[in-house]
Design a protein around this nucleic acid. Structure first.
Lengths: 135, 135
DNA sequence: CTTGACGCTGACACTGATGTCAGGTCCTAC
DNA sequence: GTAGGACCTGACATCAGTGTCAGCGTCAAG
């Protein structure tokens, strides 16, 4: 498929897909005229790349990580070097802390949302006048 | 306390603390000479701000959110407006999806890390020659 | 009063993925 | 062969929090 279709199927802009290629995260064949031609598996790969970006990994880290995954691009499935493993362990730990942060933040949001929706249910009364705890 | 101590106790740079004040996320008294003087509760607030930043909220959203929290700064505990609630619900959902992403990314990292550490345990053999599945 | 650590403002730089535009090429349908 | 949509490269802009520096003021200890 060409870049437009890959963009449509993944929801990732063409701009970003070209950027991924420039960063060696994604590869493509070229037609005689120089246009990119992607294999089917590019769809899964782009989704994976997006997830890793969302997790806060940088393109350089992703570029080192991808060849070490099974099924990465049909390529020879490299083994992670010692220093890469150290880096990935750091990232994993960071992600773990980040998840904990996110869960706390979600609770904060839930509290504020819940308190507001509670008021929607009884729109008459003590909303803005905290004259003692309700109930 | 003054800004240096707050920075030390929260691990947040003085630069960032001043920025938070500029964005109305954090308030301080001033000494006669113009230096910032923080109350004890500023520590908790800074930690909370950091968590919300880590969750991807922007300072403007945080600025609207904070006054709606209990114990926000001892202030009058405002109620979230409708449009704010809509925004916060969006954020909460985004955070939920982000957590799912992060968990998948963590699994990816675990797979690569695990595969490499497996090899560390038996450093002699088939590491780079995938001549059939082990075991 | 002096000294040295600490704080102040304002300005500029950076990061890194992405948006956007210009000017040109390719490809398919007619 | 031509119209028009899809694609190409390269360049510059953006966002938002943070780093960093300059030049100056504050404050507590001696």
């Amino acid at each position: 498929m060409r870049i437009g279709e890959l963009s449509r199927r993944t929801g990732v802009s063409e701009r970003s897909l070209r950027y991924y290629e420039q960063q060696h995260l994604l590869s493509s064949e070229r037609t005689a005229g120089g246009q990119r031609e992607y294999a089917e598996r590019a769809v899964d790969r782009v989704v994976l790349i997006q997830e890793l970006f969302a997790a806060g990994l940088h393109s350089k880290t992703i570029a080192k990580l991808l060849p070490c995954m099974r099924d990465s691009d049909g390529g020879p499935n490299e083994m992670a070097t010692d220093s890469l493993v150290v880096e990935l362990v750091d990232e994993r730990d960071r992600i773990g802390r980040l998840i904990a942060d996110l869960e706390r933040s979600r609770e904060v949001l839930d509290e504020v949302i819940g308190k507001a929706e509670e008021v929607r249910e009884r729109p008459l009364a003590q909303a803005s006048a905290p004259t003692g705890a309700p109930g």
